[in-house]
Design a protein around this nucleic acid. Structure first.
Lengths: 207, 207
DNA sequence: GCGAGAACTTAACGGAGTTAAGTTAATGTA
DNA sequence: TACATTAACTTAACTCCGTTAAGTTCTCGC
């Protein structure tokens, strides 16, 4: 009897429809302006139906972000697979991270800039299969490669990775938050300069 | 007739009481969990009274943050007045910035991590007397001093200042957001390493 | 004594996230 | 085929939010 399977497929389909509707509203209007009621309206179900598929709004938007960040991991993976020396890999990865954040500002904000809801299990985030951790792992592997190639100054690889992440997060989040609210120099100059500064700062020699 | 003066004093007093109550709730519970009603309850006035003193919630919390960030500016000013070479000044300033953010996480979040309400006049932020800009000016002056002392590599002072700011903002905001949600290395090592990386990255020679 | 205005409150609006209870339709079982 | 169970979904409601319009009270200047 394929009935059960069909039911399951239908359930998964609606779940995906919710995710898609939420994602679209999310991209267009940002976290603050996405309400459960509007998502429900979009898929033409009652608001309470969403709660049959997601525990609450936070869990729903968490899943929306997971979907998007899988794309970042894929992009980083592609960079790692291309030929090039480790430092070049690292630089391209850092640039891709920033670019990704600027292309998906609402997702980036929801994932890395919003307060973690209280009572939320923070241990969840540390799991290596969470999309944030997966992306961080690419960075970490890059750093290990650079250290193996004797390109970096003598320091804990973990501290270097975290420094680089905080560096790219800094410029990404500030540009997202103050796109117009601050007299930025040209992004096309600023972003590569930030990446160069970071990589140069952890390198054995100036580059 | 000192009556008008007394009235004005009373009005200012209540305004300050609102600010203090808001600030206290803010520090204790964070932006999300401060409601106009709760602030009103704390000062034992009706919620609508607050609107006689502040246009809306955003303006109130903006003022709360201004107060706090005046403290940062004062701290940075003190650092600049102490003896020391410009690079040392800069490093101490960057460290003080991070420390200030970690000491006032809710204020820092509200000022630098929250989405700017739509319809908000973003030009307001660029004004040089806004507390954010004032603090940024200390950084900028440090950078100019370092360039004058021929310590930095040849680059636009503006781009260097913005790079350094985004660097300290990155580590500050990530540590605020994921205090427990990420396997950080020891902050006592990480934070100085970040500052060293940034300064070294923009320096003429490795340090 | 009276009118004006300042200071503050009451009551309400519309919207948010969420939940409890109810409805409907399909399924498995006798 | 008749009945009980369950899944899927909706209706109605609760509590809370920011904010506003209207009303009240009190004080001051004339």
């Amino acid at each position: 009897m394929g009935v059960k399977e069909r039911k399951l497929r239908q359930k998964k389909f609606l779940r995906q429809e919710i995710l898609d509707a939420a994602s679209e509203l999310f991209v267009k209007e940002g976290y603050e302006n996405v309400s459960m009621r509007r998502i429900a309206e979009k898929i033409e179900y009652s608001p309470t139906t969403i709660y049959l598929y997601f525990k609450d709004k936070a869990e729903l938007l968490e899943n929306v972000c997971h979907e998007t960040f899988a794309l970042l991991s894929a992009r980083l993976k592609r960079i790692m697979e291309q030929p090039g020396d480790p430092v070049e890999h690292l630089k391209r990865g850092l640039l891709a991270y920033i670019q990704f954040g600027l292309e998906n500002p609402h997702h980036y904000r929801a994932t890395f800039m919003m307060p973690i809801p209280e009572g939320f299990d923070q241990e969840e985030y540390k799991k290596p299969d969470s999309p944030g951790m997966q992306a961080f792992d690419f960075l970490r592997r890059c750093v290990y490669d650079c250290i193996a190639a004797n390109k970096f100054r003598n320091a804990n690889p973990e501290i270097i990775s975290q420094t680089l992440w905080s560096g790219v997060h800094g410029i990404t989040s500030l540009l997202i938050n103050y796109e117009q609210g601050f007299p930025w120099v040209d992004q096309k100059q600023l972003i590569p300069f930030v990446v160069d500064t970071l990589v140069s700062g952890v390198s054995r020699e100036h580059i």
